[in-house]
Amino acid sequence: MKIMVCLKQVPHQDARLDVRPDGGWIQEDNIKFEINSYDTYALEEALRIKDAGGAEVVVVSIGPERVTQSLRTALGMGADRAVHVKDPEADASDPLGVAKILAAIAKAENPELILMGLMADDGNSAAVPPMLAELLGFASTTSVMKVTRSNGSLQAERELEGGALEVVELTGPSVLSVQTGINQVRYASLKGIMAAKRKPIDTKSVADLGLAGKVGAAAAKIKIEKIYPPPKGKGAEILTGSTDEIVNKLVGKIKELGLL
């Protein structure tokens, strides 16, 4: 069986987020990037299926040169091959544009299962996995916390509000978006990292995929006008002073609340 895992490289969770002067996005120079946290869980889930019964795991990512680093990490963790869509024409695609690019790759790869993260830590849209399923005519479900496979059918437990779980049975090729915490994600071993150096990364352009003019900023059906730090409301009263002074004020407040 072949599993395709879609990875997005995003600013590191602890990176400083400064808005670009034109407000279009954040300043990306001199910050660290990493694989989107949700996607690491998707990759781990694919590798577990591979470990359990054999599967070929193909990782796919769209983005500039720096994305190679994330693909190498994924290969080091155990993925078999990588496809890198490296083309400025793909930049600033809206989620539907991204889904169209991934659909073109999926059509060539013909996977039985596509695993992705529920959403990305930067855009937070949670849009691409169901869109990809729709474009491919695949079954889909989202926010998956458990995957079980038994003779041809796939069961997924999806998370609902309050932590309740809904069991869903999927028939045929499927796209699953996984929620964080579905598993414990492995680290790439030294041996894995060495082996990854010999694993292939196939580079594609938008034109290679037959999508010239159909994706990217110009084709986006929705655009970011600007991003900005959230306006400050009344907000909290910020305590200042030495640690002792701060702590005394806190204790005073707790007493005032009648809790001490």
Partner: peptide, 8 residues
């Protein structure tokens, strides 16, 4: 193709 089984 995605069929409800149960809620836990």
């Amino acid at each position: 193709r995605a069929k409800f089984i149960e809620v836990r």
